[in-house]
Design a protein around this nucleic acid. Structure first.
Lengths: 313, 313
DNA sequence: CTCATGGCTACAATCGTTTGTAGAGCGGCC
DNA sequence: GGCCGCTCTACAAACGATTGTAGCCATGAG
């Protein structure tokens, strides 16, 4: 109801005076800080870079800024104070990229009425919106790829079972082995204590000693797979020629390693932007009834390399 | 001047009522947002993870939160709007982790009275506080290591000259070669267009064609060094045995590559926390006269691996 | 001439803090 | 008893926006 010309004049003067609205005053009055909080459990893990970038770019387009907080520890209790700090700052929403499967923090946020989206890792006991990779599908790609090469005795090096990704990948292994009519006994599965080379090496050693007949190993993560390289070599075998190995995440430099590691590429940046999109929707349409709480799974793809070859004759 | 017991009672009631101070109101009144801005030029680069973690942890201890913004582009002009967005949000200070050597953005922030610290990359035309790695010293470690192995014909694969790190490493090469009494003509130096494998491969090809007598290459970065691997192999030579190679940054998985790459480890997390420390000091003691504007250089260390061996007889 | 209407100006309340001032209650000191 | 200092309560202004209300001045319709 105001003349366009007047609007323009006001804007021009504002510009001339160098006026910029004070977001603190605005936030105080409107009770919206135009800020979202993002909690990262392990910021040094390179997968989080693209996730952060995706979130930041997407919410930024709607005028939101991103407050980053790191929670170094692996246990959920240590997360609570850092989440609280963000809530005290009156963030309008929250993206959680956590290590654990426990949903207590997400549940608390929901109780406080703070919109929350989980990214990368889901929780299994609480209904909360999350964007994750389709781990079952991804492991399926590996299993099918190996089966296509002629492997029948395929083992699984699982991740730490307190993470949702490890669980999904384990389930994917069983499911797709079953579908292909291949054996998948518990004896063909060994879990690594953490997503690192050393635990992967240990788990692979245990698995190879128990089941020396395996011709392929599907690892829950690239570093576990690289740990398996060492265990395989220690037994005088050759990765690829004697035992095929697949990783998961398709991290940088895998193609430079000998032999280059076949892996599953996860669209992390897209994961971040989808999570942000969902959060924006929850923040702008606070529809308490139909609030999204499902888990959206993004489909990864296979990067086939030299670590997977037909089984020895 | 208030009784300790009263304080305690007030605090107890506050706790009971679930009172948390509203930082927006506080910021409005005090004109301090207790927030710092952090601009990252390329968040997918894994070196920034530790830097962010270091900054966040350090300022967090003093009650500050960290607002993250990414500026994807490499040119300084694209940075301006994202810096402005942070300034408009009334951040109390700013940490810039940029790609370019241009100081215009830092200069503008100083003019606006926003305390600013540069991290990882310095600028050469403006007096601004910065925390960077000691590139000359780091390259010195590589050069001395190679000279100690018996190399005399050592070339340098430089980085893109628009970055301060590339410049410092180039200078370090010349300086330390000079000190050791070794030849370091311009013909032994070739610059890669970017800190990536492909440009490194190209530059190494040019350098090896021009100076086939070189027995060692000091690269300005790990990826450039890995590009050199390919160029060396293409010429029927073996990395390590025929031509030694060193990288810079000591990124993950370098020890898994064949041959494992000798590199320079930079204390990135410490870099982040030192930058934060400096920024805190500037924000709390706004001493316009003696404002720090020097460059602090953190000393890296050498990780010797198989890519460096004595020159062929 | 009156009155409704569109487009504007002016003013006040509110958000939750910080900061400052005024005054009340109460003990001890001269 | 009067005065001072200590501790506390009470109240108001300010920060910079949003939001709502009231009034002003044209213009044009009745």
């Amino acid at each position: 109801m105001v003349h366009p010309q007047t609007t323009e004049r006001v804007l021009a003067v504002a510009e001339e005076l160098g006026y910029t609205p004070n977001p603190l005053a605005k936030g105080l009055r409107t009770n919206k800080s135009m800020t979202i909080g993002m909690v990262i459990s392990d910021i040094e893990n390179p997968v989080f870079g693209p996730i952060i970038a995706g979130v930041e770019a997407t919410v930024g387009r709607e005028g939101y800024s991103t407050l980053i907080a790191e929670a170094i520890a692996h246990d959920p209790a240590a997360l609570t104070p850092v989440i609280d700090a963000l809530v005290d700052r009156r963030v309008d929403g929250m993206v959680l990229a956590m290590a654990t499967r426990s949903g207590e923090n997400a549940a608390r946020l929901k109780r406080l009425g703070v919109p929350v989206v989980l990214v990368n890792r889901a929780v299994d006991d609480v209904e909360v919106a999350s964007i994750v990779g389709d781990d079952q599908f991804g492991i399926g790609l590996s299993v099918q790829h190996l089966a296509g090469l002629g492997h029948e005795l395929i083992g699984h090096l699982a991740g730490p079972m307190e993470t949702s990704t490890a669980l999904g990948r384990l389930q994917g292994y069983h499911k797709h082995m079953e579908e292909l009519g291949l054996d998948h006994p518990d004896s063909a599965v060994e879990s690594a204590e953490w997503y690192q080379i050393e635990p992967g090496y240990k788990a692979a050693g245990v698995l190879l000693d128990r089941r020396p007949d395996l011709t392929a190993l599907v690892a829950a993560n690239d570093l576990i797979a690289l740990g398996a390289y060492r265990a395989i070599r220690e037994r005088g075998l050759e990765v690829g020629a004697d035992i095929s190995v697949t990783g998961y995440n398709d991290m940088m430099l895998l193609d430079m390693i000998q032999p280059s590691l076949t892996s599953i590429r996860v669209p992390y940046r897209e994961m971040g932007s989808e999570a942000a999109e969902l959060l924006l929707q929850m923040m702008t349409h606070p529809d308490p009834e139909s609030e999204p709480h499902g888990t959206k799974r993004l489909r990864p793809s296979l990067s086939a390399r030299d670590s997977t070859q037909p089984p020895p004759a």
